[in-house]
């Protein structure tokens, strides 16, 4: 069956069986291999992409359900010479070792910072109705859907905290 959607700003038409996941379509049909297949069961977060502004696991999403959707992958966030703030921060803070989880971490964090900017609370937020301030504890909780087998968590949190701080300052202005 045919699915029409936008991927990184480009309109696409993909012909695939109903059982093809968004993850497999991105990698095999479009050739966007930045999005990674880790567990393929929604447990590791390596396949995280942003659909209509929300971070989701592309391994648990059927392509055919995404008719009309706007998908952003790690390739759509930036490119060499024009990296996004989080891509720069992961490099500057050494937020990876093997790098396999990194595209998922960066897509997830990109959308997570916007969730916090909208005031969404988390399980560790003291108040459900206060402002969402991205402390290290908050970042760890909100990023718990992205595993790093190299355990680069301290540097991943550093990278996200840097960008989150700048984003919050911008929102406050």
């Amino acid at each position: 069956m045919k699915t029409t959607l936008t991927i990184n700003g480009e309109p696409r038409e993909i012909e695939a069986e109903a059982r093809v996941t968004l993850l497999d379509a991105l990698r095999h049909e479009i050739g966007l291999t930045g999005t990674k297949k880790g567990c393929d069961h929604g447990q590791c977060g390596a396949c995280t992409v942003i659909v209509d502004g929300r971070r989701i696991n592309s391994c648990l999403t059927l392509l055919c359900t995404q008719e009309g959707a706007e998908v952003v992958t790690v390739e759509g966030l930036g490119e060499p010479g024009r990296l996004s703030a989080l891509q720069e921060a992961f490099l500057a803070q050494d937020g990876f070792q093997c790098g396999y989880c990194t595209p998922g971490q960066i897509c997830s964090a990109t959308a997570m910072i916007e969730e916090a900017a909208k005031g969404w609370p988390s399980w560790v937020s003291e108040s459900l109705e206060g402002e969402a301030v991205l402390s290290r504890e908050e970042i760890s909780e909100r990023m718990s859907g992205n595993l790093c087998r190299c355990a680069c968590y301290p540097n991943i949190v550093d990278a996200i905290a840097k960008v989150a701080e700048a984003r919050m300052a911008e929102a406050a202005e």
Partner: peptide, 23 residues
């Protein structure tokens, strides 16, 4: 929900991950 049913917000936020809750 946050104001009048905080137990529900808390329970939802205790479950799964940010990505899964979005779906």
């Amino acid at each position: 929900v946050r104001r009048s049913y905080p137990v529900l917000s808390r329970a939802l936020l205790a479950g799964a991950s940010g990505q899964l809750r979005n779906m």
